[in-house]
Simulated assay, not measured.
Amino acid sequence: MSTVLLIEDDQSIAEMISIYLSEEDYSVHWGANGKEGTKLFHSIEPDVIILDIMLPDTNGMELCKEFRTVSNVPIMMISAKSEVSERVKALIIGADDYLCKPFSMRELAARTNALLRRSSLTNTAQSHAVTLEEESTIDMQSIKIDMEKRCIYLLNHPVETTFSEFEIMRHFWMHPGKVFSREELLNNIRGIDTFVTERSVDVHITNLRKKVEIDPKEPKHIKTVWGVGYKFEP
């Protein structure tokens, strides 16, 4: 049973989400504000977080940034704000998905399941891609990826990434030199049942370049293939 941390100040919405996800065999823990949510975050070790942006004691964006500094747990933001700028901002600060209110419980459950599925299948996928004779840490010049720890290293220093950023980098890593379209990357990091835009991939790529490239404006590893998408050059 997967553990969901729900941080939502509207009790009626929280109760609907909790009841529906519980019926879908999730263990839901509810925090009515940022303080309660933070306490639960450190005590229950959630598998996924559903986080409202408008909270009575803090901004959900700031809480997302705080969680992201210590964990790569998938985070889905929920908000009545539907502007593209808000969605992009959420992705930039570390969220993995963004759902606008009002939404159907069925869609919420599908998106939650998509995030959890991508997370749970990571170890299975890499076991097929990396043979038993290979080390779990693969070295390509200045960049290293530890698949087991889900961590990227630049010049032996750990680099903090979001769930989606690591998934993109992992996929690049397993297929060096291959050109991926934005749609292919979206399907690989999200699953085809979750709505996201191509702009989301651009945001993740920009963030990755800032973290692993010496000069993000002149990337040596994560390169743009104009009119097609992106590729990774070891």
Rank of each mutant, 00 (worst) to 15 (best):
K217E: 15
Y153E: 03
S82C: 03
S85R: 11
I78H: 08
H171T: 13
K220S: 09
Q11T: 12
T124L: 13
F41M: 07
S43V: 01
L63N: 06
F172N: 07
P158A: 04
G191M: 07
F67T: 00
D25W: 00
V28D: 10
E165Q: 13
T161C: 07
L186A: 07
A80Q: 03
L99Q: 03
M105P: 03
H157G: 00
S127E: 04
Q11D: 09
C151P: 06
L154C: 11
W30S: 09
E135F: 02
G31D: 02
K217C: 09
F172K: 11
L154E: 07
E24S: 09
T69E: 15
T137P: 00
E66S: 14
M169I: 02
E134T: 06
E107T: 13
T224V: 06
E36D: 15
T161G: 05
M169K: 04
K211L: 13
I143Y: 07
L5T: 10
S120D: 07
A129G: 00
L208G: 14
I75M: 08
E62S: 08
E107W: 00
A109Y: 12
H221A: 03
S27W: 03
D146Q: 04
S82G: 14
K178V: 05
H128K: 08
N188V: 04
E198H: 06
M140N: 10
I189K: 06
P46H: 06
H171A: 04
H204V: 05
E83R: 12
F232P: 01
F163G: 00
K101N: 08
L63T: 11
L40P: 01
K149E: 15
T162C: 12
S82Y: 05
P56R: 11
V159T: 02
N113M: 07
S104A: 12
P56D: 12
P56T: 09
D139A: 04
Y230F: 14
S200D: 15
S164F: 01
L116P: 02
S120W: 10
K211M: 10
M1P: 13
I17F: 02
M169W: 12
I50M: 10
V4W: 01
T162R: 08
V28N: 08
K210A: 13
L186K: 02
S104M: 11
P216I: 00
N207L: 05
C100Q: 14
Q141V: 04
T38S: 15
T161P: 03
N123H: 10
S104D: 13
R199D: 09
